[in-house]
Computed example of a mutant assay.
Amino acid sequence: MLKGIDWLVRGLEVLLVILLASMAIMVFGNVVLRYGFNSGILVSEEMARYFFVWLTFIGAVVTFRENAHLGVESLVQRFGRNGRLICMVLSDIIILLCMAAFFWGTWKQYPINASMTAPVVGISMNWIYGIGFFTAIGIGGLVVIRLLRTITGRITEDEINAFAGEGAEAAAIRERAE
């Protein structure tokens, strides 16, 4: 199961690189056109903004998978294994509730966005704001998998230490010190 997720995350990372490179090309091209030729491409300006939105929300899923979001690691690092597990489960429940609220909000907003189109490109605004579905399902799914692995006892020490903000090296040093 986790191997399939790793493959999917690698695909998302490639998509993030493509989005970022596309944004850079579009913005740079518009700067050159604006200051060099007193013109510009409106479509690229609008699409760069939408790519930034997609980049942010897709990046949130990848970042969650890598335990790279901000956390109160200085507190969690002080706990032993059981304390860290309790913090992880509580954190996961809170995140799952937030993702459910985020999904619900995106769902309620969907009909409104369906009736609006982007000013220049003319695509439905659901293509822009609908990325909330992906983020809510992506992070929510990762949380459910981690909760199930925790409940069934299949969570590894490396995963618990990563949640606490410790790499494998820091965890080894900490265990030797205890």
Rank of each mutant, 00 (worst) to 15 (best):
G167A: 13
I160Q: 04
W7I: 10
M99H: 02
V143R: 05
L85G: 09
A68H: 09
F163K: 04
R49K: 08
G4W: 10
I25S: 02
Y110R: 11
N38S: 12
L2Y: 10
G105S: 08
I131M: 12
L33A: 11
S44P: 02
V27C: 05
I86G: 00
L15A: 11
V121Q: 09
N161Q: 12
R146S: 05
F79I: 04
M125P: 02
L96R: 01
L97D: 03
A24D: 05
I155A: 09
A24Q: 07
F51L: 12
S74R: 14
V61C: 04
I139V: 12
L19C: 11
A171N: 08
I137D: 00
M88A: 10
L42C: 01
L97Q: 09
R81G: 08
H69W: 15
Q109S: 10
I41L: 11
G167I: 01
A48G: 06
Q77C: 02
G29N: 10
G11Q: 07
I25Y: 13
G105I: 03
I86W: 03
L147D: 02
L16C: 08
S39N: 11
Q77S: 15
V14G: 05
F37W: 14
I94A: 15
G130F: 08
E178I: 09
V121S: 11
V121L: 12
V43W: 08
W127A: 07
L142M: 07
L85F: 03
M88W: 03
G138E: 02
G36F: 13
L16Q: 11
I173D: 12
G29E: 05
I25G: 00
V143M: 02
W127L: 15
I93C: 09
M88P: 01
G153A: 07
D6M: 04
A162C: 01
I131R: 03
T106N: 13
Y50L: 07
L19N: 04
L12C: 09
I160S: 04
M116H: 14
I123D: 13
K108N: 10
N126R: 15
I160V: 15
M116F: 15
I151A: 13
L147E: 08
I18S: 05
V43G: 01
F102A: 10
I18A: 14
I128A: 13
A101Q: 10
V76Q: 00
R154G: 14
R10C: 06
R49T: 12
I173T: 06
I173R: 14
L20F: 11
Q109R: 11
Y129A: 04
T152C: 09
I95T: 13
A164D: 04
I58C: 05
R146V: 02
G83L: 09
A24T: 15
V9W: 00
R81K: 13
L148F: 09
V72R: 10
V43T: 14
Y50R: 04
S124V: 07
E66I: 00
P111R: 10
V76Y: 07
I86T: 09
W107L: 14
I155M: 12
T63Y: 05
E159Q: 15
Q109K: 13
T156G: 06
N82I: 10
L15H: 01
S44F: 10
M88L: 12
I173Y: 05
R149H: 12
A60M: 09
